[in-house]
Design a protein around this nucleic acid. Structure first.
Lengths: 226, 226
DNA sequence: TTTAAATGTTACAATTTTGTTACAAATTAA
DNA sequence: TTAATTTGTAACAAAATTGTAACATTTAAA
C-alpha cells in the first residue's frame, strides 16, 4: 500500500496523528496548515489523495475544493473532507462541491484508513501503489522495470511507456490516436501504423513462452490488455 | 436527474419514504424486502444504483454485496449501504466489502439524496452508462465486449456497432434507412439489402442455443430488439 | 391457391485491417 | 570516435471483414 497523500488541516494534533499513522502504512505524506499555502504545495507534491479540513484560517474547505476542480490537472484528485460540524447542511454542501467522501471529527484512524482505501480503490485502482500490476505482470515505475511473475522483462523506452499506458487502464480498448497522444511526446508526427510495429515489439518481449497473450487486438478499434 | 435505483430493505416504512421521495425526484425505483428475492429482481431491473440494508431477514448486506461483485455485469454497480448500527467495525466491513458509501439510520432524505448524487457522479460522470444492457445482454463500450449472461460473444466491427445502436433504444423499431445513417460512416453508399445480411450475421453471433431470439423483424418497417 | 413483395441464407471476390520483416536514420552508450 | 540500441517507415504477407449477387423461403394480398 503506497501513494501520496496531502493534508490541509490547521489542528497540529490531528496532522501529527494522521501523518504519523499514514506513513507507518506506507504512504508518503505532506501537509499545510492553511488553504493558500496548501494550494501551492499541492501542485509541487502531486498527491494521489487530499485530506481537507472543513474549517481553515483563511479559505474554507469547500472553496479549496472548488478551486481544485477548476484545475485540469487536479479535477480528478480524490478529496476526503474532515469536518468538526455534525450538521446535515454542511455535509450536503461538502458532497455537492465535488468531495468524494467526508469524515466527522473525532474519528478513529481505522475509520479514516477504511475511507482512504475505499476512495483510492474507486478513483485509481492501480495507482494505489507505484507498481502497476495486472495479472502476472508487474511494472515498477520507480525502478523502471517490468516483471512477469518473477522473471524480469527488458523493454525499450517506447515499449515501457506503451505498457505503462495500457496498465493505467487495463482491459480498456484504446484507439491508435489515443495511444499516440498519450505515449508519444507532443507534436511528434508518426504514422498510425508505427504503433502496430511497437505493439508487435511489446508483444514479443512480454509474451514469454507458456504464458497467455497479454495484448488484445480489437479490429478497427485499437488495442487493450487482456 | 434520472436513473434507476433498486432498494433491498425489510422495513416497509423506510421503503415507502425513500421510494416515494426518489420517484418524486425523477428516479425509477423498485425494491425487495429480502436478499434472495432482491438478487433476482436486480437482474431484471438493471438499476444504476443499489440501496442495500445491512440487516436483512436472510442474507446480510455484505453477503449480497460480495455476490454482486462476482457477477460480470454488476461488478461496477454503485452500492450505498444502510445500517442501523453505529459501530465503527461495521462501517469498515461495509466499505471493504466493496460498498461505495454507507448511511446510518435514522437519516434524512436530503442526506440520502446528497449521497446518491455523489456516488452517481463518481460512478457515472456523464449519467451515461458505459455499459448498455438489455435482458441478459451486456455491451461494454470501454472494453468493446459483449456478453450474454456471462458468456462472451465475439462480434465483428459492424456487428458491434449495429448492436450498440439497437441497444441505445431497445424495442424501438428502426428502418433500414435509419440504421444506415446511424451505423454506417457518412457518405457511404451501401444497398439497403446489405443490412439484412448484417442482421443475419449479428443474429448468428448473438443467438446462443437455449436462448430466445433477440432481434425482431418487423415486416416492411425494419428491425428491433425484443 | 396463386402471385408478388419482403426477408433469409449462402457463397465469394474485393477490400480493409493487421502482422511481420527488413532496413536506414537517429539516438545513445561505450 | 565507434558500436550498439532504438526508432519510424515501407513493403509484403496473412487474416478478417465487407458488400453484393443469386437463390430460397416466408408472408401478405389478391
Amino acid at each position: 500500500m503506497n501513494g501520496k497523500i496531502f493534508i490541509i488541516e490547521d489542528e497540529p494534533s490531528i496532522i501529527q496523528l494522521v501523518q504519523h499513522n499514514l506513513e507507518k502504512n506506507g504512504f508518503i505524506v505532506s501537509s499545510s496548515v492553511n488553504g493558500n499555502d496548501g494550494l501551492k504545495e499541492l501542485k509541487k507534491f502531486q498527491p494521489d489523495l487530499l485530506l481537507l479540513d472543513w474549517m481553515l484560517p483563511d479559505l474554507s474547505g469547500v472553496e479549496i475544493c472548488k478551486n481544485i476542480r477548476k484545475d485540469t490537472s487536479y479535477k480528478n484528485l480524490p478529496v476526503i473532507m474532515l469536518t468538526a460540524k455534525g450538521e446535515e447542511e454542511d455535509k450536503i454542501k461538502g458532497l455537492d462541491s465535488g468531495v468524494d467522501d467526508y469524515l466527522t471529527k473525532p474519528f478513529s484512524f481505522n475509520e479514516l484508513m477504511a475511507r482512504i482505501k475505499a476512495v483510492l480503490r474507486r478513483s485509481n485502482p492501480n495507482t494505489v501503489s507505484d507498481n502497476l500490476k495486472f495479472d502476472d505482470l508487474m511494472l515498477d515505475r520507480i525502478e523502471k522495470r517490468v516483471f512477469r511473475d518473477d522473471q524480469e522483462i527488458k523493454l525499450g523506452p517506447t515499449e515501457f511507456r506503451l505498457l505503462e499506458f495500457f496498465l493505467t487502464n487495463p482491459k480498456r480498448v484504446y484507439s491508435r490516436d489515443q495511444i499516440l497522444e498519450s505515449v508519444w511526446p507532443n507534436n511528434v508526427n508518426v504514422e498510425s501504423r508505427t504503433i502496430d510495429v511497437h505493439i508487435r515489439r511489446l508483444r514479443q518481449s512480454v509474451n514469454l513462452k507458456n504464458k497467455k497473450e497479454l495484448i488484445r487486438t480489437v479490429r478497427s478499434s485499437g488495442y487493450s490488455l487482456i
